[in-house]
Simulated assay, not measured.
Amino acid sequence: MSKKVDVLGIEFDHTTKLETINTLKKRIMENKKTFIVTANPEIVMHAGRDPQYKKILQSADYIMPDGIGIIMGANLLKNPLPERIPGFDLMKDLLIIANKERLRVFFLGAREEVLNKAIDNVKREYPGIQIAGCHHGFFKENDPQIAAMVKKSNPDMVFVALGFPRQERWISNNFHLFEKGIFMGVGGSIDVLSGTVKRAPELWRKLNIEWLYRLIKQPQRWKRMTFLPLFILKVLRTKKN
């Protein structure tokens, strides 16, 4: 997965989901520490305004295109990416690996009751997974006790659901403490894992209009959706220049 595609200063991995999973499985088995970012247009736009956050993204081992806007942007720049790799799908594939290999998984983030529901669902669906530990997302970002607790649990995978940019900052600030493990920011994926938030039906996902389904179900998200046209406009300006 060496080829990169630059979209507004963020370098995405030119890869498929299957290739990604095969690479990550190999890294897990070799105890290689790995920082994964799944970035959508909103994240890319934020990185453009926040140099420190951009640096964090650039330090990640892999950046995946989560969001049809990224695919559209890469196409406009005449440097297409093979496919969209949604963060939730990637997390589920990693849970399948964890289940098969009986790996230790730590979940960090979300509200406590949502997190507990998600853990119950994971235990039921993936009985081979060892739950290394979990903690809700309501803590001070620089609290050393949280990082110490995660480290003590000796995890093979850490899913951080604090929302961007906080989740990537937390991973970046504490990455040096660990000797192994997959570290990935998963946004609202724990809400979906718990059943609190429903995912778009498969047809909507195949048509790449999952964003529209979420907007219909959660109209309060409309402000977030304004990032897509702004992002495309910025890509077109970059192309022109």
Rank of each mutant, 00 (worst) to 15 (best):
K78H: 14
G163I: 04
G185S: 06
L177G: 04
D61R: 04
K26H: 10
K123E: 14
E125S: 13
I131P: 08
A110R: 02
V235A: 01
S2P: 08
I190W: 09
E141R: 07
F178T: 06
I146N: 11
R27L: 10
L76M: 13
L115R: 05
T38R: 02
D66F: 00
L8T: 09
H136S: 15
L203W: 11
L162K: 07
Q218V: 11
Y213K: 05
I68E: 01
A60K: 05
K3H: 10
K17L: 08
H135C: 12
N99Y: 08
M184Q: 12
H176D: 12
A39N: 01
K54P: 00
G73V: 02
E101A: 06
V160K: 03
R169I: 10
G185K: 01
P165D: 06
A200K: 00
H135K: 14
P219T: 09
L90F: 04
I97V: 12
G9I: 08
C134H: 15
A200H: 02
L94F: 09
L233Y: 12
L233H: 10
N154H: 13
V105Q: 03
F164G: 11
K140H: 13
G195S: 10
K152V: 07
F139S: 06
L193F: 10
K140Q: 14
N142Y: 11
R224Q: 12
L162R: 04
E168H: 08
E101I: 06
M225R: 03
I43T: 09
V150R: 00
P229E: 03
V44D: 03
V114N: 04
K123I: 11
V37P: 05
L57R: 00
K17E: 08
W211T: 06
L215H: 03
D191N: 14
H176A: 11
C134F: 15
G109C: 10
K151G: 02
A132N: 11
Q130T: 15
S2H: 13
V37Q: 03
K26N: 11
G73P: 01
T196D: 11
G195Q: 13
I190N: 08
K17V: 02
L57G: 00
F138T: 07
F159Q: 02
F227Q: 12
E141A: 06
L76Q: 01
L76W: 04
T34E: 05
Q220M: 12
N40G: 04
L203V: 11
F175N: 02
F106L: 06
K78M: 12
L115G: 03
V105I: 08
R104D: 09
S2V: 14
E83K: 00
P155E: 06
N116W: 05
L203I: 15
A148E: 14
V7Y: 02
L230C: 05
Q218M: 15
F88D: 00
N99S: 13
V186G: 04
K117M: 15
K117D: 13
K55E: 15
N174R: 04
N40V: 08
F106V: 01
Q130D: 11
K123D: 09
A39G: 02
K92Y: 02
